[in-house]
Simulated assay, not measured.
Amino acid sequence: MSTDYQRAREELGRRLRELRVESPAGRLTGVQLAQRLGWQQSKISKLENGRQTPTDDDLRAWAVATGQPDVFAELRARLKGFESHIRSWRRQLAAGHGPVQETWNNLVSDAQTMHAVSNAAVSGMLQTADYARHVFEHHAALQNTLPDTEVAVRARMKRQEWLYRPGKRLNLLMHESVLWARICPPDVLAAQLDRLLGVVGMDTVRMGILPLDAPLRLSLGNSFCMLDERLVVVEDWHAELWLDDAETIALYRRVWDAFADAAVFGVDAQQVIARVRRSIKV
């Protein structure tokens, strides 16, 4: 999690602790407040130490339980200020793509499951080195950033080791247009599609393809990745959006499920990929 985001959450936690300690009716211990709220004492500790993001209902209950209901508006404003955290590419890429990929490696390493939708390019979790190389070169040129392509490629390939660890699960949806997108030379794209054909059936990968003619209940939006249903990262041209409030995560899970209903998996997915692969002349 970003330093700015975590700092804001810790500051909110300190404010919550202050309200508990300075309750008009007298100082409350963490145990006493937990009893009033009907919560586990561990939740009080996590909120005060910035290890858990509160909901609106949590903040309202806290303000009332400490005898300071009027403070809810302030607490809610603080929450809304950081629950949607924007990580600009300009700031992230100041030192190149390599450090950004290492951040992702650390983020993914602790996750057990991932749910992702890729509507722009093949998911980084399944990219070949050559395909990734072209992606990084294009984005470095777009953002006018340090061209550390080889460092970034190595970091991305390292992240894919996650796929071969017991207990991991990648649930990936890709629109068929991604398979056709010529963001690399034909021979590189052909090898990339061969890679996708090879992962169908892997124990740790459930890959679905949204055919071009699939009936969709939702319009295609930005690509996103959900880690253990605790964090959603949405990609845009100017920034990544990191979201960890429960309501938003639930929303993105419903989006994933809606697209999954229209996707094909297994042999049917292989047939779509193979059809595109046959069209490439190398």
Results as ranks from 00 to 15, higher is better:
residue 65 A to C: 11
residue 85 H to Y: 08
residue 91 R to M: 14
residue 43 K to I: 00
residue 63 A to E: 11
residue 75 L to A: 08
residue 33 L to R: 08
residue 37 L to E: 01
residue 39 W to R: 04
residue 54 P to A: 05
residue 96 G to T: 11
residue 28 L to G: 02
residue 57 D to L: 01
residue 55 T to L: 09
residue 58 D to K: 01
residue 86 I to L: 09
residue 96 G to H: 14
residue 55 T to D: 09
residue 48 E to F: 13
residue 51 R to F: 00
residue 91 R to Y: 07
residue 92 Q to L: 14
residue 71 V to R: 00
residue 76 R to C: 05
residue 72 F to H: 01
residue 94 A to R: 10
residue 36 R to Q: 13
residue 64 V to M: 00
residue 52 Q to V: 03
residue 43 K to D: 05
residue 39 W to V: 03
residue 47 L to E: 03
residue 94 A to Q: 12
residue 93 L to T: 01
residue 88 S to Y: 06
residue 82 F to N: 00
residue 81 G to S: 00
residue 43 K to F: 04
residue 83 E to S: 08
residue 84 S to L: 14
residue 62 W to Q: 11
residue 45 S to K: 12
residue 76 R to P: 04
residue 92 Q to M: 15
residue 34 A to W: 03
residue 57 D to G: 04
residue 69 P to D: 02
residue 59 L to H: 09
residue 75 L to M: 06
residue 30 G to F: 04
residue 71 V to H: 03
residue 91 R to I: 13
residue 35 Q to W: 05
residue 85 H to S: 06
residue 74 E to T: 03
residue 59 L to F: 11
residue 96 G to N: 13
residue 82 F to G: 00
residue 55 T to C: 04
residue 36 R to M: 06
residue 97 H to Q: 14
residue 45 S to Q: 07
residue 54 P to V: 00
residue 32 Q to H: 03
residue 81 G to C: 02
residue 80 K to M: 03
residue 83 E to T: 11
residue 80 K to F: 07
residue 57 D to V: 10
residue 79 L to E: 10
residue 24 P to N: 11
residue 62 W to P: 04
residue 79 L to T: 10
residue 61 A to L: 11
residue 85 H to R: 08
residue 37 L to S: 03
residue 84 S to C: 09
residue 57 D to E: 02
residue 89 W to F: 10
residue 85 H to W: 13
residue 30 G to V: 01
residue 90 R to G: 01
residue 67 G to H: 13
residue 61 A to G: 04
residue 31 V to P: 12
residue 75 L to G: 12
residue 95 A to N: 08
residue 52 Q to R: 12
residue 23 S to C: 15
residue 38 G to P: 01
residue 90 R to Y: 12
residue 76 R to W: 12
residue 56 D to F: 06
residue 25 A to K: 14
residue 47 L to Q: 11
residue 44 I to R: 13
residue 51 R to K: 15
residue 57 D to T: 07
residue 29 T to E: 01
residue 51 R to I: 01
residue 83 E to V: 06
residue 45 S to W: 15
residue 63 A to V: 15
residue 43 K to Y: 11
residue 84 S to M: 01
residue 76 R to K: 14
residue 48 E to I: 12
residue 93 L to R: 10
residue 77 A to L: 14
residue 34 A to M: 05
residue 60 R to T: 14
residue 96 G to Q: 13
residue 48 E to M: 09
residue 88 S to V: 05
residue 53 T to E: 09
residue 54 P to I: 00
residue 95 A to R: 08
residue 78 R to P: 13
residue 29 T to Q: 00
residue 93 L to V: 07
residue 21 V to G: 15
residue 50 G to T: 06
residue 54 P to D: 02
residue 43 K to S: 04
residue 43 K to V: 02
residue 78 R to I: 02
residue 57 D to P: 10
residue 25 A to S: 11
residue 44 I to P: 04
residue 34 A to S: 02
residue 36 R to S: 09
residue 53 T to Y: 08
residue 54 P to L: 01
residue 69 P to V: 10
residue 19 L to C: 03
residue 34 A to P: 02
residue 94 A to I: 14
residue 40 Q to C: 07
residue 68 Q to S: 09
residue 92 Q to H: 10
residue 21 V to K: 07
residue 59 L to A: 15
residue 27 R to C: 09
residue 92 Q to F: 09
residue 83 E to R: 06
residue 85 H to Q: 07
residue 30 G to D: 01
residue 54 P to H: 00
residue 30 G to W: 00
residue 62 W to E: 12
residue 51 R to M: 02
